[in-house]
Amino acid sequence: MKIKVLYFGMIAEVIGHDFEIIEISNKNSTVNELIKLLQAKFPKLEDMSFKVALNQSIVEENTKIGINDEVAILPPFAGG
C-alpha cells in the first residue's frame, strides 16, 4: 500500500522534500518497518533523533500503520 509521509525541520532538509509517497507492505506494517525503510534510503537518518506521529499523535515503533494514516517524521522540538 502507498502511504504519505510528512517531513519537518532538519529531517525535511536531509531528505530534500516536505513529503513523499512511500510503498510499504500491505499487512502488519509497523512504524519500525517504515523507519528501517527510510534509513536504508537516507542513511543520514540513522544518526538523527526523531519521533513518529500517526494521525497527529506521537506513537511507539511497534504501532501498525493503516492505509489512510497520516504519518509524520518529527525532529526535536524547538518551540517557545
Binding site: 519537518f8 525541520g9 532538519m10 506521529a53 509524520a72 518529527l74 525532529p75 522540538f77 524547538a78 518551540g79 517557545g80
Partner: peptide
Amino acid sequence: IKAKAPVFGK
C-alpha cells in the same frame, strides 16, 4: 509547549 508542540526552529 517546549516539550510537546511540534514546532521547529532554524
